[in-house]
């Protein structure tokens, strides 16, 4: 039920991986660029490791709909193991794409996607974050991949604006900004479009 100028993104992650934070950060940065935005999580029972879903609507006009997203343009899978338990491609629009955190290639992932025939993108968010941030923090790489693949925001301006957002968010931990910025840039280069 979204209007044509709206991009809808559904995030699948596990509690503690930062899918919600990436979703809210995307909303914040898109809002900073003058878009109308929604970023919201859907929780089941609250616990680390439980599957969680988060949603973004990004549009030129204010969207008043406050339901979950059933027909997303893009799906971001922050945890590969969810492919076995969650119908991640459910409702995904034909012209859309799924972006998965995995060391595998898009060709290797396709057979695990319940017959999904559209675009498959992969990124090894774990390795990138471990290499640059020293920990498995997959949400920052997945955010970069989502922006790159969806084209919902122009990448150069996105990087400038998110740096501003990080300065605010990490005001008491400025040492985190550089690593996160490097992670974003590297992830945009490394995401594989299948």
């Amino acid at each position: 039920m979204a209007s044509n100028d709206m991009v809808e993104i559904r995030w699948h992650g596990r509690g503690g991986q930062g899918a919600k934070m990436a979703c809210l950060l995307l909303a914040d940065v898109a809002g900073l660029e003058g878009k109308f935005v929604q970023g919201f999580p859907e929780y089941g029972p609250e616990r680390m490791g439980a599957p969680i879903t988060a949603y973004n609507r990004i549009s030129e006009k204010r969207c008043t709909i406050h339901s979950n997203i059933y027909y997303p343009d893009y799906v971001v899978v922050v945890d590969e193991t969810l492919l076995d338990s969650v119908d991640v491609t459910g409702g995904l629009k034909e012209g859309g794409a799924i972006i998965i955190n995995t060391p595998s290639s898009p060709q290797e992932m396709r057979p695990r996607l319940q017959g999904w025939t559209g675009k498959v993108c992969t990124i090894d968010a774990r390795s990138i974050s471990e290499e640059i941030l020293g920990r498995n923090l997959p949400n920052t790489p997945m955010l970069a991949a989502a922006v790159k693949v969806s084209g919902v925001l122009e990448t150069g301006r996105f990087l400038t604006n998110i740096e501003e957002s990080f300065k605010h968010k990490f005001a008491d931990k400025p040492q985190l900004i550089e690593g996160n910025m490097t992670t974003l840039k590297k992830s945009m280069e490394e995401v594989q479009l299948g």
Binding site: A27, Q38, P41, Y43
Partner: peptide, 12 residues
């Protein structure tokens, strides 16, 4: 306000 739907949703 509506829990989660409003309380946890970032909007303009």
């Amino acid at each position: 306000m509506d829990g989660f739907i409003t309380s946890h949703a970032v909007e303009n």
